[in-house]
Write a protein that binds this DNA or RNA. Structure first.
Lengths: 229, 229
DNA sequence: GCTGGCGTTCAGGTTTCTCTCAGGAAACTG
DNA sequence: CAGTTTCCTGAGAGAAACCTGAACGCCAGC
């Protein structure tokens, strides 16, 4: 099967570029438009497998766009981008079927994970819900993480950090790389927070792992060590 | 495949020349421009496989340039050059979609290694993460170095020095040559530090190697001896 | 309103690294 | 063989990178 097609709808050029670059790098075929009016024609022309749709557009809102898409016969799922203070019922009104939403500002890791989760359900992409890295297993649907037989209890950020590392095993990841992928794109703090969270993860993983799995590569970053298969 | 094309964007002529010469010698097809305005047209005309982009340009900053490149449909990776005292949050947002950054002042070895790492991932250049020189192997992704079956634990500088020597085996490398490639370009200390680091390397390698691998060519420099295959 | 979990910052402590220097060893020169 | 040059390496000062406990504010749920 060819690469899934994704259409991005957002009026902020920064967000559009950020998403376009990231998703292209993930192997998706990406198109983007900046307003609601262009969405309909782009969808009809491209027939994307998924739409990333900002709810607040200058010319029309997510309801109108969705309504018009649905009545035009488009049935593929939509991932909505909403502001954090949007009311819950406004959001639930939008997400029917395989749809989902993430709040702005998001982290890139988050968006990619959600998109894969949706596509896993709608296209028959089997088997990818489970991430396995050595003795650690992570179920992206249930958020269950295990080291050997022991279940790990992680905070949301710990979970995302570990997921990012598990998706890039045996590779040195710099602190800013981690920051860019795991934290929200407008995070404006110090890279020291990565050190803190690495410390938290170690405290939870090391006591039950057979060996230290998170290694420090001084001067370069961190690495999740996974033995060769 | 033809040689990868690289575009260098920096306003300091010294840096431009330094990079141009080095990268041409590495076999890349190199072009260079001095400001942000010229970048767009150069990119569209040349379609480089990678851009080396100084974040601080006189006419516009790296963010603006990147933004305009991305919205012009240019998707190839960018290696950013940033000042070391730029706060980390300025760097944040840069390492997305295969992009990377190095801080000024850099070492030539560093730049070349990063460029190759990026191209390895974006163009399907497989298998080159591993550098092999006789009984020494070096994995550039995991930073793992082995002599035979034994793993070596190296400091960052030791690692870079050994990498440079492994990339130039059976060739006498003068101390100033080593200094130019392994140390940052503005380092103005004594060449004696190379002696120190050669000594460190020997102390770690010789006990587990079958024979002394680093040879002194008195009056000329050092050489990593690798038997013909 | 209270509580507890979470994200974030910060500072002290610790480890590790870089770089310099100087005395001694080795190699070359005449 | 004595003098000279070059190289080797131990010791150590200082800096950088890293780790971690503690504190604070925020927010959700009770």
């Amino acid at each position: 099967m060819a690469n899934p097609k994704i259409l991005i709808v957002d009026d902020e050029p920064n967000i559009r570029d950020l998403l376009t670059t990231t998703l292209r790098f993930q192997g998706f075929a990406v198109q983007s438009v900046s307003n609601g009016a262009g969405t309909i024609s782009a969808v009809l022309a491209e027939e994307p497998d998924l739409i990333v749709l900002d709810v607040m557009l200058p010319d029309m809102n997510g309801f109108s766009v969705t309504k018009r898409l649905r009545s035009a016969g488009y049935t593929s799922p939509i991932l909505f981008l909403t502001a954090k203070d949007d009311t819950q019922d406004k959001i639930t009104g939008l997400t029917v079927g395989g749809d989902d939403y993430v709040t702005k500002p998001f982290s890139l890791d988050e968006i990619v994970a959600r998109i894969n989760a949706i596509l896993r359900r709608t296209m028959a992409k089997e088997e990818e819900a489970m991430i396995i890295a050595g003795e650690i297993t992570m179920d992206q649907d249930t958020h269950e993480v295990k080291v050997g037989e022991n279940t790990l209890d992680l905070s949301p950020t710990e979970f995302k950090l570990l997921r990012y590392m598990m998706l890039n095993p045996n590779r040195v990841l710099s602190k800013s790389q981690i920051l860019d992928h795991v934290w929200e794109y407008d995070f404006n703090g110090d890279a020291g927070i990565v050190e803190s969270y690495i410390s938290y993860l170690r405290r939870k993983i090391d006591p039950i792992a057979s060996e230290p799995l998170i290694q420090t590569k001084r001067g370069f970053g961190y690495m999740l060590r996974v033995p060769k298969p």
